[in-house]
């Protein structure tokens, strides 16, 4: 398993666990799937849990100024960001 696919799997796992989604729904996410503003489960409280859990599971630290609307716009934008953060891009 390459670094990128494992980050992808971990990220899908975080979304499933934090938002209480089922595996099939999370597996169907593609790069264009909208997140914040598109998934009713992803409210502002869930954003906090989501980011903290991403940090814990991927061992990265997200700074305040990196967290904006663009970061959570689509699954693709979030994956690209955390992959770059892990140095895997």
């Amino acid at each position: 398993m390459t670094e990128t696919t494992s980050i992808d799997a971990i990220l899908r796992g975080v979304l499933r666990d934090v938002l209480g989604l089922d595996d099939a729904r999370v597996a169907a996410f593609d790069a264009d799937t909208g997140l914040f503003g598109h998934l009713p489960e992803l409210d502002s409280m869930a954003v906090v849990s989501l980011l903290t859990e991403i940090e814990d599971r991927l061992d990265i630290v997200l700074e305040d100024d990196e967290i904006d609307g663009d970061l959570l716009e689509t699954y693709g934008s979030l994956l690209a960001f955390v992959t770059a953060k892990r140095g895997g891009a």
């Binding site: 499933r16 666990d17 934090v18 209480g20 489960e41 409210d43 409280m45 869930a46 849990s49 859990e53």
Partner: peptide, 12 residues
Amino acid sequence: GGAGLWLRAEPD
């Protein structure tokens, strides 16, 4: 099994 309940936005 399952996800930790502290992750949920609302108590569950």
